[in-house]
Amino acid sequence: IDVRFTVNGLDVTVRVRTEEIAERVKELAKNGVDWREIQRIAEELNK
C-alpha cells in the first residue's frame, strides 16, 4: 500500500504492508512528524 502525504511542501510516498500501518503513517504525517522519521518508523513497522 502506498501512502502519500505532504510535509513542509514535500510530497512523500511511503510503501507499507498493511492498512493499519498506513493509518499510523497518516497520523504521524498529520502531527507534523519529520518525513525521515516517518520513513524510519514505517520501515520498522513493515518488518
Rank of each mutant, 00 (worst) to 15 (best):
residue 12 V to A: 04
residue 43 E to T: 10
residue 28 L to W: 06
residue 34 D to C: 10
residue 22 A to Q: 04
residue 30 K to T: 10
residue 21 I to P: 00
residue 14 V to A: 02
residue 4 R to V: 14
residue 9 G to F: 03
residue 37 E to R: 07
residue 19 E to N: 11
residue 6 T to M: 11
residue 17 R to L: 15
residue 43 E to R: 07
residue 32 G to D: 05
residue 33 V to M: 11
residue 19 E to G: 08
residue 40 R to Q: 09
residue 32 G to Y: 06
residue 2 D to S: 10
residue 10 L to H: 14
residue 33 V to I: 11
residue 47 K to R: 10
residue 41 I to S: 03
residue 13 T to N: 07
residue 29 A to R: 05
residue 16 V to S: 02
residue 46 N to Q: 03
residue 16 V to H: 00
residue 24 R to S: 05
residue 17 R to A: 15
residue 18 T to V: 02
residue 13 T to W: 11
residue 35 W to K: 03
residue 40 R to Y: 08
residue 42 A to V: 14
residue 40 R to F: 07
residue 16 V to C: 10
residue 45 L to D: 03
residue 22 A to Y: 05
residue 7 V to P: 01
residue 36 R to N: 13
residue 20 E to K: 11
residue 30 K to W: 07
residue 29 A to Q: 06
residue 44 E to Q: 08
residue 47 K to Y: 12
residue 38 I to D: 00
residue 23 E to M: 12
residue 43 E to P: 01
residue 22 A to G: 08
residue 16 V to N: 00
residue 15 R to H: 13
residue 2 D to L: 14
residue 4 R to A: 09
residue 18 T to M: 02
residue 23 E to N: 13
residue 39 Q to Y: 13
residue 10 L to Q: 13
residue 38 I to H: 00
residue 7 V to D: 06
residue 36 R to Y: 12
residue 30 K to V: 09
residue 17 R to K: 13
residue 17 R to F: 13
residue 47 K to E: 13
residue 14 V to E: 00
residue 45 L to K: 02
residue 23 E to K: 13
residue 43 E to Q: 09
residue 21 I to E: 04
residue 4 R to H: 15
residue 31 N to S: 14
residue 35 W to Y: 13
residue 8 N to G: 12
residue 25 V to E: 00
residue 21 I to H: 07
residue 10 L to N: 09
residue 36 R to E: 14
residue 41 I to F: 08
residue 46 N to F: 04
residue 39 Q to K: 12
residue 22 A to H: 03
residue 30 K to E: 11
residue 27 E to Y: 12
residue 29 A to C: 06
residue 32 G to I: 06
residue 42 A to H: 01
residue 32 G to Q: 07
residue 18 T to A: 03
residue 47 K to P: 03
residue 3 V to I: 12
residue 20 E to L: 10
residue 1 I to V: 08
residue 3 V to F: 05
residue 19 E to A: 13
residue 35 W to E: 04
residue 2 D to Q: 10
residue 15 R to M: 10
residue 15 R to K: 09
residue 38 I to G: 00
residue 45 L to E: 04
residue 13 T to A: 07
residue 29 A to L: 12
residue 4 R to D: 06
residue 2 D to V: 14
residue 12 V to K: 06
residue 1 I to R: 06
residue 24 R to E: 05
residue 8 N to Q: 09
residue 46 N to I: 02
residue 20 E to R: 08
residue 31 N to F: 09
residue 41 I to Y: 07
residue 34 D to T: 12
residue 34 D to V: 07
residue 12 V to L: 11
residue 6 T to K: 12
residue 42 A to R: 01
residue 11 D to P: 11
residue 5 F to N: 01
residue 11 D to Q: 15
residue 11 D to I: 15
residue 33 V to W: 09
residue 16 V to E: 00
residue 42 A to I: 12
residue 13 T to V: 15
residue 47 K to I: 14
residue 16 V to I: 02
residue 24 R to W: 07
residue 45 L to W: 11
residue 21 I to N: 03
residue 34 D to P: 14
residue 46 N to K: 01
residue 3 V to K: 01
residue 36 R to C: 09
residue 9 G to E: 05
residue 15 R to L: 08
residue 15 R to I: 08
residue 22 A to D: 00
residue 33 V to A: 08
residue 20 E to N: 07
residue 20 E to C: 09
residue 31 N to T: 11
residue 10 L to D: 07
residue 44 E to Y: 11
residue 22 A to M: 06
residue 10 L to K: 14
residue 46 N to S: 05
residue 20 E to S: 10
residue 35 W to L: 15
residue 30 K to C: 08
residue 46 N to Y: 04
residue 3 V to P: 01
residue 3 V to S: 01
residue 37 E to F: 06
residue 22 A to I: 02
residue 37 E to C: 09
residue 7 V to S: 10
residue 37 E to K: 08
residue 43 E to S: 09
residue 10 L to R: 12
residue 32 G to A: 07
residue 2 D to N: 10
residue 25 V to I: 15
residue 9 G to A: 03
residue 39 Q to W: 13
residue 19 E to F: 12
residue 21 I to L: 05
residue 17 R to N: 13
residue 36 R to W: 12
residue 26 K to P: 00
residue 7 V to L: 09
residue 26 K to H: 07
residue 45 L to H: 03
residue 11 D to L: 15
residue 19 E to H: 14
residue 2 D to K: 10
residue 3 V to M: 06
residue 30 K to Q: 12
residue 5 F to P: 00
residue 18 T to E: 02
residue 47 K to M: 15
residue 4 R to E: 08
residue 27 E to A: 12
residue 29 A to M: 11
residue 15 R to E: 05
residue 31 N to P: 02
residue 8 N to W: 04
residue 7 V to F: 12
residue 19 E to K: 14
residue 6 T to H: 12
residue 18 T to R: 02
residue 34 D to M: 09
residue 33 V to P: 01
residue 41 I to W: 06
residue 6 T to Y: 07
residue 29 A to E: 04
residue 44 E to H: 08
residue 29 A to V: 15
residue 20 E to P: 04
residue 39 Q to A: 10
residue 38 I to V: 06
residue 2 D to P: 07
residue 26 K to E: 05
residue 33 V to L: 11
residue 2 D to H: 11
residue 3 V to G: 01
residue 17 R to S: 10
residue 1 I to T: 05
residue 20 E to Y: 13
residue 34 D to H: 13
residue 31 N to Y: 08
residue 31 N to E: 12
residue 21 I to W: 02
residue 6 T to C: 08
residue 18 T to D: 08
residue 27 E to K: 09
residue 21 I to F: 05
residue 22 A to C: 04
